[in-house]
Design a protein around this nucleic acid. Structure first.
Lengths: 211, 211
DNA sequence: AACTGTGAAGTGGTTCACAGCA
DNA sequence: TGCTGTGAACCACTTCACAGTT
């Protein structure tokens, strides 16, 4: 299943949940497409990956489809993750309420700054988490069988953190640190750099200016 | 020029700047490739977009190449941007020191919360910026000819903010709000949703678990 | 008649592999 | 000999278009 499809499934899911609440029985690919901002063809292709069983001439059964998407996304089980580097970005993640509905649970927060250790952050409803010293990271990850780590540290410490995470058993890393990370075979890293995203926009804007 | 290439150019640039400081005259595609984590072929292809003039058998002249990359990225002129929605994410952006070296300048911060209005945030070195009420957004964008906007509001208000931005002249939007935005023709939106990124990692991790 | 499911074509980007040049 | 520049193959995803099904 393409990453692009995985990225769209949660959006379909949100629509499907709303539809189920309103009591709708079926939904057309075009309806979902409209809400998510893609074409009907994309929706049908995406749903074919989750093992779709719509009815030609009718549409998709809302409830069953919703269940299919839920299992495809692995929302049956909770996914534990740790966040390393509790600056503004780390805080934003720790307090992000959107994680709950995706069964993503921030179970550990880590930072090297002694002043931060012991502080509890996050939403009271979704559970506060205490910031722990970086030295406890490896043991914590191993003990709690965490497989997902977020690196929100400055670039200089990112590689060291990645080494810690991977050696402790993390297989998936979200890298917010704007550096390339070297990781062992089998570990998947997704880099996200907001400065780069804006840079791309700036180049587009500059081109538009010329035209 | 592909977006993927634009995204890599700043990374090459960082290497080139370092190399220039160390006094290196030339650099091989393989050297840059190693630092950025791609193949030499990608580097050469990318550099061909910026109008490369390396020497076969020798490599690229560091100083000239650096200049070429700088102009390709439009770093000659400063790009002004506004951030709407000053939660943790908005704060992270406002205070992000990496913007300076890319000539990205946060000139306006906006929020709807009256308690935040007037607060100044950002790094003292790169310039503090005061949070203004959302009602002043359109006028500010038009007056200061801002072309780039970042939406870091909750999903519910994102579309309204996008409408405000585009009608005031913004042509490029970074959408951190996890919703699809409908915008006029010609406006480019880049969606970034950290929850979705982690979701993709979670699906990969789950698959790995099974294997 | 209406809408799904999917081959087939198209698109954007990466990789290969090698000719071209110092 | 060594490294660049690039056509051509390749791959992943999107779009088209239409046959298939109720």
């Amino acid at each position: 299943m393409p990453d692009a499809t995985i990225a769209r499934l949660p959006q379909y899911l949100r629509c499907l949940s709303q539809l189920e609440n309103t009591g709708a029985q079926t939904v057309h690919s075009a309806d979902l497409a409209g809400h998510v901002g893609v074409s009907g063809a994309v929706v049908r292709r995406d749903l074919s990956y989750v093992g779709s069983y719509g009815t030609r001439g009718v549409g998709y059964p809302v409830a069953q489809l919703r269940q299919k998407v839920i299992t495809a996304l692995g929302l049956a089980t909770e996914h534990r993750l740790v966040v390393v580097g509790i600056g503004h970005m780390g805080r934003a993640l720790a307090g992000y309420s959107g994680f709950a509905e995706r069964e993503l649970r921030v179970v550990g927060l880590f930072d090297i700054d002694p002043d931060l250790i012991g502080t509890k952050i996050g939403e009271a409803s979704t559970g506060m988490v205490e910031i722990q010293p970086l030295t406890d990271l490896a043991a914590f990850v191993a003990d709690h069988e965490v497989r997902i780590g977020v690196i929100a540290t400055p670039a200089a410490s990112a590689q060291a953190v990645a080494d810690l995470l991977t050696s402790a058993g993390v297989t998936s890393i979200l890298n917010l640190s704007a550096t390339h990370l070297a990781v062992p075979e089998g570990v998947v890293v997704r880099p996200v750099d907001l400065a780069t995203e804006i840079q791309i926009l700036a180049v587009h804007a500059a081109q538009q200016e010329v035209r």
